[in-house]
Design a protein around this nucleic acid. Sequence first.
DNA 1: AGAATAGTGTCTGTGAGACAGTATGGT
DNA 2: ACCATACTGTCTCACAGACACTATTCT
Lengths: 208, 208
Amino acid sequence: MADRKGKQLTDYPRPSVAVDTAVLTVAHGQLCVGLLTDGRSPKRRLPGTFLHEGETLADAVRRSLREKAGIEGVEPVQLHVFDAPGRDTRGWVITVANLATVRADAVGSLPLIPVGDAAGLDFDHDDIVKLAAMRLRADYSEHPDPAGLLTQPFKIGQLRELHAAVAGELSQPDTFRRRMLPRLSAVGIERRGSVGKPAALFRRITID
Amino acid sequence: MADRKGKQLTDYPRPSVAVDTAVLTVAHGQLCVGLLTDGRSPKRRLPGTFLHEGETLADAVRRSLREKAGIEGVEPVQLHVFDAPGRDTRGWVITVANLATVRADAVGSLPLIPVGDAAGLDFDHDDIVKLAAMRLRADYSEHPDPAGLLTQPFKIGQLRELHAAVAGELSQPDTFRRRMLPRLSAVGIERRGSVGKPAALFRRITID
DNA sequence: AGAATAGTGTCTGTGAGACAGTATGGT
DNA sequence: ACCATACTGTCTCACAGACACTATTCT
């Protein structure tokens, strides 16, 4: 038998474990992803790094985003492990795909590309971007701004425009309002600013 | 910089990468999980193995189930990577949790425990079982027998009992029928067997 | 007054859930 | 005749989607 204690931990070859992160944000009314161009390949790629000893995957994601893009304080979400044997020509590398959703003013130095235009990336990063966008859209279709992209409190119109950017289509204002209201808590009225009836201000309901 | 080509692939310490699999099935009207007791720990655990070079995670899952329980032909579903630094006292090991759903007559030598009773397992295997059960229940709440546990064709009553076992509660026959019918295709009538009106036979609709 | 934005009343359709009924077989 | 199982008619409730209407502010 090959599973005596200790044997596998020392004798077997081990893969390099990487993390790659789709940094998603909403800019110019569109869902965008942050892409790097580094020297290793002419193709664009997602920011990533190899996992260090004593480090969690989430910490590795935070380190890679801090070092490569100056992004701080993200809470990554694990998506999927990509493990195709030939996916990295440099050797045996598996990667844990992650999603980090950040505000557009916090993407640091990372160039943003609309997710629809993010094709032809290095490795399997096209698939990671698709997965990340699907996940974010699924989350936003059920909850008001689950990633906390809006500054609280916010107006329903702002929330609707954000959701439109994420989903790629604008919903009816009345339907959207009624679907979101049960998950919002009113905290006052817009003081004043532009034309029109002052809007009510809301926060997300934390307890669900 | 520490990301010159080749450097990380050779210089950094690498984790052992394991797969651990919650083998779920329905037996005695209950959702059950297959648990091992091996010599390494007094606690029960999920079947697992270390990832070998040139092998995908799904192949490692299939190998571990074949070798440790005689289970063949499963299609594992990736759930989550568990990476807590101290999760394995033998060293630096991260594990990819998987779900494999099999028929009760195909669990081989694996002892079955109702998922509700599967607590106090080794490592973080309690969490893996919970995750796997949540995932399977979510799948079954939306589709008729997505894991293919029933022999086709089947009667709606059989499908309802299977779903009751997975969900842990029996739904109303008429509501269940109407919810599932749009996703089923009628293929005939029960020839005869027990008392009562002969039931219609169905297959799952593949195109969705 | 008119434009612009916020919000409501109400109709329609759909689908879950529940109750009671009908249909078809065995004993 | 009676029971057991399969299936259907129909009512209620809730909610999404759409249209038209009212409300409140600025210019």
